[in-house]
């Protein structure tokens, strides 16, 4: 039967090996994959300023981006594609809480520069290669087809 020192070796050995593999995989991802998949060359000052606004207003406290955040308000990864810039400008610069179907968004009242920075940020986010996320709805009714 397993002894205590064997159990300790299992713990230490397993931890060290998986951690080294994890660091190796992370390194490859961050140096080789991320720059290409996220189009790092397009990270302009506006995109970065947009990210600052995204964080300093805790947008993630209601929305998700890249599928991460809270589940109170829509996923915003593909928001530019889905809603278009005009709609986004209206929402972001609104002086009263934007409330489609009565669920209120905080009235951030962003100025024109900030609105553009956020839109640039969302455009950049929308172009990241996300392995197919978010999935395209694929339901098709087969009723009455025959």
């Amino acid at each position: 039967m397993l002894s205590k020192s064997q159990a300790r070796t299992f713990f230490l050995g397993g931890t060290i090996i998986t951690f080294v593999v994890f660091l190796g995989l992370s390194w490859t991802s961050l140096t080789k994959e991320v720059p290409k998949r996220t189009h790092e060359e397009n990270l302009t000052a506006d995109v970065i300023a947009g990210k600052h606004l995204w964080e300093s207003n805790n947008c993630m406290g209601c929305h998700t981006i890249l599928g991460e955040g809270a589940y109170y308000a829509p996923e915003l990864t593909k928001v530019v594609e889905r809603r278009g810039e005009g709609y986004m400008r209206a929402v972001l610069s609104s002086k009263v809480p934007w409330a489609p179907r009565s669920r209120k968004m905080v009235a951030h009242n962003f100025n024109e520069v900030e609105v553009e920075q956020l839109i640039e940020f969302f455009k950049w986010i929308g172009n990241i290669d996300l392995n197919g996320f978010p999935p395209k709805p694929d339901y098709k009714s087969t009723n009455n087809l025959k």
Binding site: A7, F10, F11, G14, T15, T18, F19, V21, F22, L25, T28, S29, L30, K32, E33, V34, R37, T38, L66, G67, E68, I128, D129, L130, N131, G132, F133
Partner: peptide, 23 residues
């Protein structure tokens, strides 16, 4: 031991759809 062996590389389940590779 089981926690770390599964959990460290299990971090990968947060990396599926955030802009890193298919590995």
């Amino acid at each position: 031991g089981l926690t770390f062996i599964s959990g460290i590389l299990g971090t990968g389940h947060h990396y599926y759809y955030i802009g890193v590779g298919k590995t």
